Structure formats: C-alpha cells, structure tokens
Amino acid sequence: MPADHDPISRRCFLEGSAQIGAASLLAATPAVAAAAADQKLGFFVIGDWGRHGAHHQIAVGRAMAAAAAESDPRFIVSAGDNFYESGVTSIHDPQWRSSFEDVYSEAALQRPWHVILGNHDYRGDVEAQIDYSKLSHRWHLPARYYTRTKTLPDRSDAEIFYLDTSPFIRKYLGTSTRIEGQNPHAQREWLDTALGRSTARWKIVIGHHPIYTTLGGAGHDQPDLIAAIEPLLRRHRVKLYINGHDHTMQYVEMGGIAYVTTGAGSETYTPGPASRTGFVSGAHGFLACAATKDAIGLDFIDSTGRSLFRNTITAA
C-alpha cells in the first residue's frame, strides 16, 4: 500500500480510481474519467475540527472546498469532536458560527453534512447538536446513531451506519464526558439488526473512536470497540470502518477490513513509528471517498490540497 504523492487532479482521482483502480489512474483518458463520473458516489470525511478556525482548521476547510468544487461530492461526514473543548451549550452557542458556519462558508461546502458525536461533544449539550438539524440546511444529526442509504448511479446501494461510540468507552464513566444514561447494549443490538437486514452492496460503518489503528497499542486501538463492534463488522462482511478521535490520518487493514482514521481537521500531533503495515501522517487534512459498485477509492488530502495516500478497496 504505497503512498502516492503525484499532484494529479482531485477530479481525476475521485471519478477514476474507484472505477479503474489506483494503479492505472494516471493512464486514464478524459473519456474514461467521464464514464467513471457517471458511476461514483463521492463523499468527504473530516474529524476533530471545531476550534474557532485555529490549528489549521481554516486551511483544511479551504482545501476541502477546493476539492469539493472540483469533484462535487454528494455529502460531507463529520466524524465527531465537532466543538472543542466541551461541545456546545445550546443551539445559540456562538461556536456554531465561529467553528462551523464561518469556517466552512464556501459555496462548495453548502451541501449535506452527516454528523456524529465525539467524546468532546459529550462534555456539552448533545441534544443541542441534534436540534441544530432543524435550523440548518446542511447539519444532519437526526439521532445519536442512525443509518442512511445512498443509491449509486448504477442503482446499487451504499448504506452508511453512523454510530455513537462514546457510550461504549468505559473509562468515560464518572468523568466530564457525560455518557451516563446511554445504553451501548441497545445500540449494539440495533447495529447487529440493521447490518443483518441491509441488502446494500456496500456497508460502511462510521464511528468517532478507532477500533484498530496503524499505530496500534494502548491509546490508539480501542479495546472496548474491539470487543463490542469488531465482531459485528466481521459477521456482516463490512469492508470499511471510518473514524476520527486520533488526531492523525491513518490506514490499516485487519482481517479483511479497512480501518481508516481521519481525525486531522484541526489540531494534530506527530505520530510515532507505526506498529502495523499501513499509512500514518500527522498532517492536517481530510478524507475523500468515491464508491462504485465494485470498489471504493480513498484519498487522504492535506491542508495544501496535496494527496498524501491513496488506496482502493474492492468488493470481492
């Protein structure tokens, strides 16, 4: 899984790689790219971002807007920790403007944002983040966990399962991350049932916390989710799990599942050496995805608009 730093256009990658494979991407003709554009479901994922524009948040937002103007993703996903350090206090909290509306203000970002909650959001008013969905034309957080099905142009489906992972993390009990009153067992049963009845070509699960990471070990892998969620991913043949929380960009494959971390929307850190084969970077950025019937192309893009790593997941 080599990193690819070639400065090819975002449209070429998103419209071509999932259809023809990253290896042959550079040889794609305009006709091939145009044909691929008719077959893809594009979306972006950004995690761990809400810092009033600081810590490169504005730069990442601009890079995301430029990429969106070029490739026209159908929606954007927020992988949680939407507002630092302690969520929002109400639907009128000034952070709605300083960390969201005024940062992601470009026309290309005025499209649906499908949102999940992170542990920092649980330090504030979670219901306010749900209620903001009624005020915003793009902020979509209908419940603490939910699912959405997107139809690809070839009429196959991608179903995305949006989780609320903080209640699974036992170390938060009794802390300022107020998960008391939530029922992770009920959520796990919901996910098991929903994955089992899904007939979608692609089942994509998105949660705030990682399950496995390239870095591995304590503080990176999440044993509570390894116990609760990983068996469901295996049982229902999920090929892709995406998360934030770790303030890096990472890709690793474990047991036939791609685990992708995109927690670099603002503050990041310089990661240590990887303990598993894959990709890891402390750069600021986001993840671009392009799904077709047969493959999902993944592209980590940094705050300058440069592609840091690309890979393709196949359905077979």
Results as ranks from 00 to 15, higher is better:
E85V: 13
K171Y: 15
G305Q: 08
H140M: 10
H137P: 15
K203P: 05
T292E: 02
S9K: 07
P167F: 09
G16L: 05
P271S: 01
E127P: 00
V205M: 06
A158R: 01
G263T: 06
D4T: 10
Y132I: 03
Y251L: 13
Y145E: 08
Q19A: 15
L25E: 01
S90P: 08
F75D: 07
Q110H: 08
S9R: 11
E230R: 11
A35R: 12
L152V: 03
D121W: 04
A65Y: 06
E85T: 14
V45C: 09
A258E: 08
G53S: 05
A274W: 10
A66Y: 07
R74H: 06
Y162K: 02
Q129I: 01
I130E: 10
T214P: 03
R234N: 12
R235E: 13
R74Y: 11
Y259E: 01
R306I: 11
Q250Y: 09
R138G: 02
S24W: 14
P112A: 04
A59I: 04
A316G: 14
A54V: 13
Y146C: 00
I204N: 01
P73E: 05
V252F: 10
T314N: 15
K239M: 08
D302W: 04
F75R: 05
Q250N: 09
P7H: 06
A264G: 02
L298W: 00
G16Y: 06
I179F: 06
A65N: 01
E127W: 02
D48T: 05
D38F: 12
G61N: 05
E267Y: 14
R97A: 14
Y259P: 07
T149A: 02
F309K: 01
A288K: 04
Q95D: 07
G216Q: 00
G21H: 04
S275L: 15
E189P: 10
A295K: 00
L117A: 00
A28I: 06
T199G: 11
G181R: 00
S303L: 15
R74W: 06
K293G: 13
R74N: 12
M254P: 11
T175N: 04
G61A: 09
G282N: 04
R51F: 11
R235T: 13
V32G: 14
W49M: 11
P30E: 04
L173H: 14
A59C: 04
P271Q: 03
I169S: 07
L152C: 09
T89A: 11
I8M: 12
R306E: 15
G16N: 05
P7V: 10
T175Q: 07
V60K: 08
T151A: 04
A158P: 04
Y146F: 10
V88M: 07
S9E: 12
K171A: 13
